[in-house]
Design a protein around this nucleic acid. Structure first.
Lengths: 357, 357
DNA sequence: TAACCATAAGTAAACGTTTTCAAGACAGGC
DNA sequence: GCCTGTCTTGAAAACGTTTACTTATGGTTA
């Protein structure tokens, strides 16, 4: 298939048909052995100044570039990470991915993108592919982490750096970087309570996901601490998507004793709540306070600006990569759990509850 | 560095320390030569049914997985594409990337993500990396395509499939898939004119970018066709970003004879215009009609819903990958130019101009 | 019965590097 | 002048596949 080869075949000794230049060509030109070339290239071992010069000159003249596939073959390192997320269309993962890719690039790694849609079979497929391609590490960031797939990889490749971003896998000891979701949930709820709200709804994402559960914990903790009742009808879980926020928002807001504030599990859900409120003629923040989670681009775009709990997405992404790189370079596994603190970002979607009603 | 090896070193003949299983192990277990194993694996050449069975059994039992690095080494194919975009955080590229990655996955390819921020040096760096890694093709999608880098790659690797998505490079013959930007610009403007608008502004992205220029062409064509004057003060170019829409929007809307409608070069710019209008107390669509371009997620989120020109992002991404795959498989370069038609999507941000004033 | 062909399977070279090993050169200390 | 140690280089093995080439075996055809 490669053109160069084909020509060789067809025409025999056709000269210089865009043949890629290898270390052999450099060696020939510099009049040294390939091992010497390799040594100056990687400057490992001993090499004299004169030889170094000769080789570098040849490298420049021939515009030689090391073939990384060959290097990968023998070194068993590809300078590549696999990144597993549900969906890059999701703005949250866009921001995360950008941070990860940047940091990886800084360290000389590329990242292979894998969108799983939270589909275990798809994830498994990707995992197989990545493993066979010899990637140097895997970064997971999916709300529902499947321990079956993870466990399998851990068994077949116990040495492979894996770090989980934003989620936890039960009963599996892995490197993980997280936001303090309980704290975030607590802070969000506290903020609403401080504004005088008493009937507060919660719309969360995937019921089994770590983020949903933990944020709900924080929510409940704050409500209980202030002795406010939890209304089951005002707590709904679905997905971390606009659509879910819209649907569940409509359900909650249609009730007679509808809440005066809603804590949305993430910004996308909050956007859905905005839409529901708009359709029902409910004004934000006059009639309804809304608080989100993540502080993604959505929060600023929406009108009124969304008050939200900021997840330090970029910092977390960067830390994740640094952890992975460290594991690779130092060849030891930390199994660390790094927790980032979330912060409240006040915009215009939350206000004091109207006492009159 | 690889654990397996290290152990071997340290303890001498330690047995079976999670050594990866190779084709040799399969051959030994099945009592055949490695070439035979290779043949049944790829079913190429002749293999008897009995041998096939033996080999497959051994493969299953050993859970053998072909090492793709080794395959890449000899076949010079890595089943990997490089994707070069400015920024995955940008929602437009998120949607595009998802479509591309999906299609690539369907065809058995992975994609390496590269964010260049439209920085030529960065682009070059990525390009070098990709080339050295032996990727099978490159997909570009950046507003300002640098012909220097492209030309260089074309020279060093004339056989390498490259396809450009959404942009054109002057004086370079490449496979490209595009939206009809002139048509889109024309349609957008026509829509506004049909609503009775006469003073219409245009806020575009990067001045040198193909999309900006072509959309502006369509805008001008429509204006001229209806004999409407072009006001230089109402035509501003900056970047395809929210911030640009905000800044330029404010400038335009601050004028005395401010336009009654604005054609934004893309949806992000339109979002910026929304913000500017809000700050200035200008209502959309009552006081100002706004039309965007792309029909990205922003268009639906914003209130009022953004009327926009739909770019068939997903379809274009898919077509791009299909083109690249076809080039690889059939080993011939089409240098095709595929044009997709844009369509008008009416939402609530455009309305008849108020005649009273 | 010889010649030919299709089928089957093994041997070894190849892909482009890195790395181990061996060996040569040269210096300094005795 | 010999031994030891430090530099310096090259030959060759290795990484895990694919593939060209070779050889062997039957069966068919002339």
């Amino acid at each position: 298939m490669p053109i160069g080869k084909r020509f060789h075949k067809l025409f025999g000794e056709v000269k210089n048909v865009e043949k890629t230049v290898t270390i052999k060509d450099v060696a020939r030109k510099a009049n040294v052995s390939i091992s010497t070339v390799s040594r100056v290239l990687n400057n490992s071992g001993y090499t004299s100044a004169s030889v170094k010069e000769k080789v570098n000159k040849a490298v420049d003249e021939l515009k030689f570039q090391k073939n990384m596939v060959a290097t990968a073959m023998i070194k068993k390192q590809t300078s590549t990470f696999g990144l597993i997320i549900p969906d890059i269309k999701n703005i949250f993962y866009g921001e995360l991915t950008r941070a990860i890719e940047d940091k990886a690039h800084q360290h000389g790694f590329n990242v292979i993108l894998c969108n799983t849609d939270n589909n275990l079979e798809k994830e498994k497929e990707y995992l197989n592919f990545l493993l066979r391609k010899g990637i140097d590490g895997i970064i997971f960031s999916t709300p529902e982490i499947n321990d079956r797939n993870i466990r399998e990889v851990m068994k077949s490749r116990p040495d492979l750096p894996m770090v989980i971003l934003g989620s936890k896998v039960q009963n599996v000891r892995l490197d993980e970087v997280l936001v303090d979701n309980v704290d975030g949930g607590y802070t969000a709820t506290e903020h609403l309570i401080d504004l005088g709200h008493e009937r507060i709804g919660y719309i969360g994402g995937q019921p089994d996901s770590y983020a949903t559960v933990e944020r709900l914990k924080g929510f409940k903790a704050a409500m209980e601490e202030r002795a406010l009742p939890l209304d089951k009808n005002h707590i709904k879980l679905d997905e971390f998507k606009i659509h879910s926020g819209y649907e569940k928002g409509k359900e909650i807001l249609a009730e007679n004793d509808r809440p005066t504030a809603i804590f949305a599990g993430n910004d996308a859900i909050a956007v859905g709540v905005y839409k529901a409120a708009r359709e029902l003629g409910i004004r934000i923040p006059e009639d309804l306070s809304v608080i989100g989670f993540d502080d993604s681009q959505f929060a600023e775009i929406v009108d009124p600006g969304l008050t939200t709990i900021r997840t330090p997405i970029a910092e977390m992404g960067e830390k994740t990569v640094e952890l992975a790189v460290q594991i690779i370079k130092e060849n030891k596994n930390f199994k660390e759990s790094i927790m980032f603190p979330p912060t409240l970002v006040e915009r215009a979607s939350t206000a004091s509850v109207k006492k009159v009603h």
